[in-house]
Every structure is written in C-alpha cells, then in structure tokens.
Design a binder for these strands. Structure first.
Lengths: 141, 141
DNA sequence: CAAAATTAGTTGACTAGTCAAACACTTTGC
DNA sequence: GCAAAGTGTTTGACTAGTCAACTAATTTTG
C-alpha cells in the first residue's frame, strides 16, 4: 500500500504526462510551439509590458536559468520574442513578447483551452475542475 | 484573463515541475535513482509477481515504449530489475523487479513520502490533499 | 573606493525522453 | 499453411532540459 503523499506525487506525474502528451501534438502542428513554449509566452502575456528578465521567467515557470536561455533562443529566432537591454543592469536583458508573439499565444490559447478541456472534462466534473484550479492556485513555489 | 482549462494545464505543469525539482535531488543522492525510475519500480512493486511487459509499463506510466527501453537499461545494470523471457510470446519479455529492487523501492518510498509531504503540506491542507488524490485517481489514461 | 561577495546569464557536457523506422515474432484469413 | 496485417521492442537521430563552471556586471563592506 502506498502512502498518501507518495501516491499524490505519482498521480501528479501521471496526470501531467497524460496532459502533456495530449497537448504537444496540436500545439506543434497548429502553432509550431511546445507546451513549455506556450507557458513562456503565456507568462509574458500576463505581465505588464510583456517583458520579464530570464531569471524571473525561470522562477515563475520552475525552470533553470539555462533552460530559459535554451528555450528562448528558438522563440526569438521565429520572432515571437525579442531581447531588449535592461537599462539599469547590463548583466541581463528583458525577454519581451513581440506583436507576433502576442498573436501566436492568443491562437495557441484556444487550442490549449479546447484540448485541455477534453482531457479534464473526460475525467473530472466541472466542480472537480474548479477545486483543482483552486488547489493549484494555492500551490506556491 | 486565462480560460479555465488552460489555467488548469499551466497549473499542472508548474506543480509537477516544482514537485519533481524537490524530489529528484534526495532520490538521486540517497537512492541513486530518479523520479521516473521510482515510478517504474513502484508500479512493478504493486503488481502480482512484480513483473510487467514493457508495453504495459509504458501505458501505466504514460511513457513511450522506447522511453521504457531506455529507462530500464540502467536499472537493469544496477540490478534492480531483470528481464525474463515471456513464455508465450517471444517478441517481448517481462521486466521484473529483483529482490534488490524491492528493497530499494521500499527505502525510496520513505524519502518520497517525506519529501512530497513537505511540498504538499506546505501548500495544502490535509483535506485538500485527500481531495487532490481523489481527483488523480479519477483521472484515467 | 577597491577587494570581496553576489547576481544574471551563457556554455559544455550530459541525461531523459520523443518519434519514426526497422526488426522479429504472432495472429488472421483465405 | 502461407501471405498479410498487426504487435512488442529496439535503435538512430533528435529535442528539451539539467548541473557545474565560467564570464561579466553589480553590490557590499572595511
């Protein structure tokens, strides 16, 4: 018999795996991005100015700084992001959503909303989903 | 504003990332395995006979068959698993927990139980955790 | 105000996993 | 009972991400 927290951890691993598996294909096919890319773009789209330092992005997405460097490169190359120098700290720069990035994330959001909806609705009632959202929002990092 | 299912998906991504980040270090340092390895060993430990075909393991863990092949190799090398031929189908073989594997997973379970407990207890009440476990259990794949 | 400590970011080397193709065996159906 | 289709697994080539070491700039402090 599994103890409660270990069972929770394994449940989380599986649920995330299942969700990612469902989301990656349509995100890649329709919008040319992965799930992590979507998370980066979405995070930027929610902050004032659409810009964040790499380190803040890393913290918010629970990624390593090098992971951010590596994920941002192709997104910059396809024009969804750009780097702009920080005016008070020359060590780093802002990672900023471009207009194209804003448009892309808005389109991708529809795909994610629909596909994730299929996954969650297939398994959970609406009040379950609201409860789950509440739990994730109470999770801090 | 983010729609409900997209917010759920991003919440899941973050929560899993945070959990994995916390678990990998002690699992590696104390037991020499990663979180996915722990999931494989645990899954095997719960089935009668401690053996499963690669494809069944893949399905249960939401991994690709090649992912299973690649994950199993080092676990076999360190003696926690062994492959035993299937007597009615020569294409595949069983992946079977060894005695050493059983002992290792029992020890690792304590680490996971404790560490995951820290993560979950820091963020959620006990009734939240029970609710979350219920939600994960209703998730099918 | 210069030396020391800290912080932001990138890079090299590596691990973990994916998908598509190949391979080997098994099952189906004429 | 053999050809065709299907299934289980591995492999090659690749993507995504980690950590440790490094560079460069900033902040602290005696």
């Amino acid at each position: 018999m599994l103890s409660e927290n270990a069972a929770l951890a394994l449940g989380m691993l599986r649920a995330e795996g299942a969700l990612r598996r469902r989301l990656e294909a349509p995100l890649g096919a329709r919008h040319g991005i992965g799930f992590t890319d979507f998370a980066i773009l979405t995070e930027l789209s929610t902050v004032q100015g659409g810009r964040l330092r790499a380190i803040d992005l890393a913290q918010r997405l629970v990624l390593s700084p090098s992971g951010v460097t590596r994920a941002v490169l192709p997104l910059e190359k396809i024009g969804l992001l750009q780097r702009v120098p920080h005016d008070r700290d020359a060590r780093g720069s802002y990672i900023q959503l471009t207009q194209a990035g804003r448009e892309r994330v808005a389109q991708a959001l529809e795909t994610v909303e629909q596909t994730a909806g299929e996954v969650f609705a297939a398994n959970l009632t609406r009040s379950d989903r609201i409860a789950l959202l509440g739990l994730f929002e109470r999770f801090s990092y």
